[in-house]
Amino acid sequence: MKTGLTVSTVAHVALLGFGLVALSAPQALEVADVEAFPVDIVPIETITQIQQGERKAPVAERAAPTPTVRPEPVPMAKNVGDNDTDLKTAADAEASKREVQTAALPKPEPVPTPAKPAEVPVEKPKSDPTPVPATEVTPEPQPRQEVTPDPAPETAVSESPDAEAVKLPEQAPSPQSRPQPPQAQTAKAPQRRDAEKPAEQQAARPQNQERSFDADQIAALLNQEKTKGGGALRSTEQAALGGERTTTGQKLTQSEMDALRGQIQRCWNVPAGALEAENLKVSVQFKLDRSGALESSPEIVAGGNGGSVERAAAESARRAILQCAPYNLPGDKYEAWADVIVHFDPSDMF
């Protein structure tokens, strides 16, 4: 027994001693520094209310889009319109109310080129020598008229800008007022129907009646001459961080809308047992006063007609709105929720 005990004790002491040396301290696990990062609670308003500006610009007190450079007026503008710059005309632009009169210039009839059979009837009227009664005759057009002796390729479309370029300086339309820097707006230039009347007059008198007179075709061509307005975004401010457009603060934010939705949903007894919930969509309009109470009885503006189930659904929506009033909504945005339309869609509930 003695030997066993001695051997065992010695072995244990040796093992422990070895352990103390070899397993003294395990290698510290290398972990990257954990940085405590601050967390801010950001109200969603800061996201839903955006001032117009540049995405990548530094933050400034006032948001502004990239400063624009006002281009020099183009003397030889190709597009019809009354902007200083040559802008593409919008397809759906309306003709301006302002009337423009151009003076047709007396011109000796040039020899019509036989090589090119003019399909466009407007071509011919151009060579009309009869002078159009002019209201204002500018002195410049005359030399220009002499320079253009080749009327064949020239269309009425190309003529009118010329006439305009001459006349415009006095009436050069510019935005009535500079847009407010933080909320740069599209400066809509007034539009003007130009050269339409004279052209019409000319079209009405085709000289060569060789081809059949097609009024529709002429009208279609003349339509191309309609002046179109263009827009220009102007800003002289330093670009600052902002969104694509300014969203007003008068809108309810997402969280406020959710709050209203929640308040109504609490009282809404969804019509149960309806087979086709798709047809049970109801839109209810109601007005609220400043305290959030109902000002008028809710009106069903969409849905609710049809069978009894639909009517029941509409009534349930109306009841929900009546029951849950008054609503608790931000008072400073009263304009945003004074008049509310709520869409009730029970199909989401099933």
Partner: peptide
Amino acid sequence: SIWTWAIIIDKAL
């Protein structure tokens, strides 16, 4: 543990 090993050694012998 020490006693266990003492016994083991002793018994084995």
